[in-house]
């Protein structure tokens, strides 16, 4: 009798091992962390908004140049990457569903599939970048693509490289975080009572997806 209650006590302590002493409850800790994450996401939105404004200013000034320069981008590859990222958003949402319903295996699998899809996105990006480098389409003053000689064309590609580049850095960071979480999930760190890191990484990943949702039509489909 004493043994079972001791075991129950240990199980209870394990379930609350994540709870910091300065929070009243697990729910309060979760809500506080999530609010902090949303604030961080707002700063991320504002970071990207600077680039979107630069894009808008130059597109309004030189619409014809943007239309011509964007034909150099392959909309099929951009579309493929859009679907890949949307799929990775789905798997991250499914991972959170698995965590909420205590399905450890589904959680681990969905997190790893998300990382694989992110890697696929980066591979496509790698081929797009190297193809442009091959043509001499480099950012800024290193632009050396003879066939597009207009003065403003390099600015379009500078904007393209900065926007997709910083977005790509976010994808790489997300891959690192999601891999770390998948490894922790394998060791059973997350369950329906505590999955805050998975939830927060999921929010971050969806935001990276949203940025791409806007980049795809604005850069590839002019």
């Amino acid at each position: 009798m004493a043994n079972t209650s001791a075991a129950e006590q240990a199980a209870k302590e394990r379930a609350l091992a994540h709870l910091k002493h300065y929070f009243v409850s697990s729910d309060q800790q979760f809500d506080a962390a999530k609010m902090g994450m949303w604030l961080f996401l707002v700063t991320e939105v504002l970071l990207f908004s600077g680039m979107f404004v630069a894009y808008a200013v130059y597109r309004v000034w030189y619409p014809e140049v943007f239309a011509v320069a964007s034909t150099e981008l392959n909309p099929w590859l951009g579309g493929l990457n859009t679907v890949v990222l949307l799929g990775s958003s789905l798997t991250v949402a499914l991972a959170i569903h698995a965590a909420q319903t205590d399905k450890r295996r589904a959680l681990v699998v969905n997190l790893f599939v998300t990382v694989l899809l992110a890697a696929a996105f980066m591979v496509v990006k790698y081929f797009e970048y190297t193809h442009k480098f091959h043509l001499g389409i480099f950012p800024g003053e290193y632009f050396a693509y003879e066939e597009m000689g207009q003065r403003i064309v390099p600015i379009f590609f500078s904007i393209y490289y900065v926007m997709t580049g910083i977005h790509g850095v976010h994808v790489l960071v997300g891959m690192g975080v999601l891999t770390w979480l998948a490894l922790r999930a394998m060791r059973g760190h997350f369950h329906s009572g505590y999955y805050t890191p998975v939830e927060l990484a999921g929010l971050y990943w969806h935001l990276v997806d949203i940025i791409w949702i806007f980049l795809f039509p604005l850069l590839y489909l002019i």
Partner: peptide, 11 residues
Amino acid sequence: SKALLVVLFFM
């Protein structure tokens, strides 16, 4: 619309 779907349901 796509961003709204992601924000409302995925997030």
